[in-house]
Amino acid sequence: MDIQQQAIGFLGGTFDPIHFGHLRPALEISEAISLKQLFIMPNHIAPHKSKSHGSAKQRCKMVELAISSQSRMAIDKRELQRHQPSYTIDTLKELKAEYPDTPICFIMGMDSLTNFDSWYEWQNILSYCHLVISHRPGWQCKFNKKVETLVKQHQTTDQHDLHNLQCGKIYFQTTSQLAISSTEIRELLKHNISIDFLTPEAVIDYIKEHHLYQTK
């Protein structure tokens, strides 16, 4: 690939707990668009969620365990160290100051893009990054007019743009969409049902060791 500067990626989320539904699409995107490194970035307090179930320290450790064998994946802890709701625009401003010459790809699912115009300072986000949208093969989504206009203005189908331009593009990447959710995992654990094959073994072992997500 003829590129000037290899982009890095960031995938944010509560990861309560992290599972293969997060990890497999993340890996596929990292390889498909040739990211130099992909950072998994757990939230401390997500603006749209009232609370998490696992502590920041526990969720951080589970992410570290989940990606330990992936040399091009790392954890970014900056949002965990905040003590107030964490907004994407604030994080992106920090990242661009830290990586002024490196293109940044912010990864999200199609469901997040559909309500993107409800995000805090959403009009400014593409000034700091590209958006890489993970979606299932063949799925066509109908956006509201604001998001539809944004996509029309910024969409690219050329991967080179993600590396050769600093920011401003929206790129759609098809990925495996595994029907796994953190909510489902917590519910299974609450009822003492196995979560084998839903998340890495190291994460399962950590959950068992610390008796996470079980009814007190």
Results as ranks from 00 to 15, higher is better:
H48I: 07
S69V: 05
S52V: 11
I40N: 03
S50K: 14
A56G: 14
A56M: 04
S50T: 09
S55A: 06
R78W: 01
G54W: 04
S50W: 06
N43W: 02
S68I: 05
F39S: 15
K49Y: 00
Q58I: 00
F39R: 13
P47N: 00
R72L: 10
Q58P: 09
S55E: 04
G54Y: 01
V63Q: 04
K49I: 01
V63H: 03
A46D: 14
I40T: 00
K57I: 15
D76M: 07
A66Q: 09
E79Q: 02
M41S: 12
S52C: 10
S68C: 13
M73C: 01
P47W: 02
A66S: 05
N43P: 10
K57A: 15
H44R: 14
P47F: 03
S55F: 00
A74G: 13
M41P: 11
G54S: 02
M62N: 03
A66W: 00
K77S: 12
R59D: 04
H48V: 02
V63Y: 03
S52W: 05
I67E: 07
N43C: 08
K51Q: 14
S69E: 15
S69I: 05
H48P: 04
P42A: 01
I45Q: 15
I75M: 11
S71T: 13
A46F: 04
S69K: 12
N43L: 04
K61Q: 15
E79P: 07
I40S: 07
H53L: 11
P47S: 02
K61E: 14
H44P: 09
N43F: 10
S50M: 11
H53P: 11
R78N: 00
K61S: 14
R59P: 03
K77A: 09
K77Q: 11
M73P: 12
R78K: 07
S50P: 06
H53W: 08
F39I: 07
R78S: 06
D76A: 13
K77N: 15
F39E: 09
E64R: 12
H48Q: 11
G54D: 05
K51M: 06
A66N: 09
K57Q: 15
S71C: 09
I67S: 05
K51L: 08
S68Y: 08
I40G: 05
H44F: 10
A66E: 06
V63R: 01
I75D: 00
A56V: 03
A56Y: 10
S69G: 09
M62G: 05
E79W: 01
S55H: 02
E64H: 08
K51W: 03
S71F: 08
A74D: 10
I40V: 00
I75W: 05
D76P: 06
S68R: 10
S68A: 14
P42N: 04
A74L: 13
R72I: 09
A46Q: 14
S52N: 14
Q58L: 03
E64F: 00
A56N: 12
K77V: 12
K49D: 00
S55R: 08
S55T: 08
Q58M: 08
E64V: 02
P47E: 04
I45K: 15
S50G: 10
S69Q: 13
L65A: 07
L80R: 11
L80H: 07
H44C: 12
P42K: 06
